[in-house]
Design a protein around this nucleic acid. Sequence first.
DNA 1: TTGAAAGCGGTACCAG
DNA 2: CTGGTACCGCTTTCAA
Lengths: 326, 326
Amino acid sequence: MPPPASPPPPPVPTSADVARLAGVSRATVSYVLNNAEAVRISEPTRRKVRAAAEELGYVPHAAARSLRAGRTRIVLLPTSHVPIGPLYSTFLNELQWALRRLDYTVVQYGSLGLSGDEAARAVSAHNVATLKRAGARAVIAMGPVGVPGAHALVMNQEEVGARAAAHLIARGRRRIGVVVPEEDGLELFSGPRLAGARQAAGAAAGPAVGIEALPMAYSEESAAALAARWRGLGLDAVFAYNDEYAMLLMRALQDEGLRVPEDVAVIGADDLLIGRLLRPRLSTVQIELPTGDHLASLVDRAVREPSEVTQRHDLMTAAAVHREST
Amino acid sequence: MPPPASPPPPPVPTSADVARLAGVSRATVSYVLNNAEAVRISEPTRRKVRAAAEELGYVPHAAARSLRAGRTRIVLLPTSHVPIGPLYSTFLNELQWALRRLDYTVVQYGSLGLSGDEAARAVSAHNVATLKRAGARAVIAMGPVGVPGAHALVMNQEEVGARAAAHLIARGRRRIGVVVPEEDGLELFSGPRLAGARQAAGAAAGPAVGIEALPMAYSEESAAALAARWRGLGLDAVFAYNDEYAMLLMRALQDEGLRVPEDVAVIGADDLLIGRLLRPRLSTVQIELPTGDHLASLVDRAVREPSEVTQRHDLMTAAAVHREST
DNA sequence: TTGAAAGCGGTACCAG
DNA sequence: CTGGTACCGCTTTCAA
């Protein structure tokens, strides 16, 4: 009599178990379950195998399968450790579902928007190699520049800043503040947006246009502090990074007695619903992103044709939309 | 001279390559690189092995490793295909990072908040088995009830609805509308919140309290349509699902000429920053969630002690906070 | 049409 | 202290 077994772990069926139950070999099981084209299996055999698999609740062991195959259906997607706003998180989420619909396993890997130069280094070529080596089929990077070996979804954030500044300039503003979020991990977005605004200012005809970076955190206190010293700044307009920061700042400015847009024009970005709910209605920079489905199929295609070449997908077009705050 | 090789795939080094270069066996490589305690390796050998690994840029093959080990460090986290609001997505994101800091690989698996009964079935016991079988170390579920075999993060959404309704009732309101988002995938949250409100109404002392479900989509049109028929509804208060829906509805109500809170009291939930920016300031139900770190360590502990028992972690406490809209 | 067997890359026994 | 070796579970030639 064997020793009183402690709760034996529920036996996980392998393909061998299925084969035994179906009275065939493991090879046959594999063929049937993978619908192998290269080999004809009789219908009765297929039935038996399928029935056995069903009965045992057999599920192929993912690790073993990919060890043998030499590749996985894993796609690495970047994540930020900090909220990046509804627009991009929705987009990323959509992409993720689209990829999954294509039967990929999506693994989050972290480094979207590390501070400053780290951002670039984080998704460096070496990292990419490491990640692919570990079994990933594709690595997706999001950033201002392409990354060798990965699918780079490059988002031209500069254009956002440029459109905002151009809009402000066209409406006669010359002293423009640009909100730069203090939150770590947003530099990936805020840096280029600021740079784009500077470019637009430099390219403007007529009198010189001044651009001033305005650090601000996403909190009432920070917005209030900025608003308190506003009059001393001598600014006649502000590009508030995005609609959420814009809402925050606009409220603080109004509480400070400033009139929008008379005393100061405010423009946001991302065209969120809240912008239309504010009074005055918030002008914004609308961003056009491709659908997750579209992007996913692009990735899928590129994965099937392993062209070891860096794939670079340009995303985003931006356009200012005028409402009441500018 | 060899034929002009087409771009030969960069040879991925295996532990055998490292062994060869270091002049030792694969076993030794494994011992050194895993800091095996059970066996003493001389310091010179260790050096050689490490140097060789470094030089080749060796990275252990994840699939092979987990095939051998019989387990992975993968944790499955649910995702919704629909935005679930800043509060929960931030929370999930935090948890994800915390898990990663603990060296887990986080894989998103999809089904948070499928419609109706599907929600429950999606994370059924069978699914859980399948997922674990495929190599996952832990499966996390979020929902109103525990799920056998998974770590269930159960969030008591009913309490949110109950607190909101109780707050409204305490302030003398008797005819309460409850916004139910029309977006698919939010039932997981909205259903319990509505049910909680009903319970609170049932438990209220004094004259009967009426609860009316108010379907509404997250769009200006839908909010405007609801506001347009508001006077016919005979409601004196509304629990607007969360602060975002509340902002939307409040705006529409005000545009319709209704006064808040005189004609209708409005309360949201989740205590988002925007609520404090609105005028009148939005009353809300504040939700206390544990930190991602805390939860991650809970999960980690449970994983180490494979107690095959369903783990159930109760989350959330809710409290109404009164501001100006009620 | 089916089965036997050789690995994929790593880990962990057991000898030496 | 180190090397040989038997697996983990699956896919896929190659023969029968």
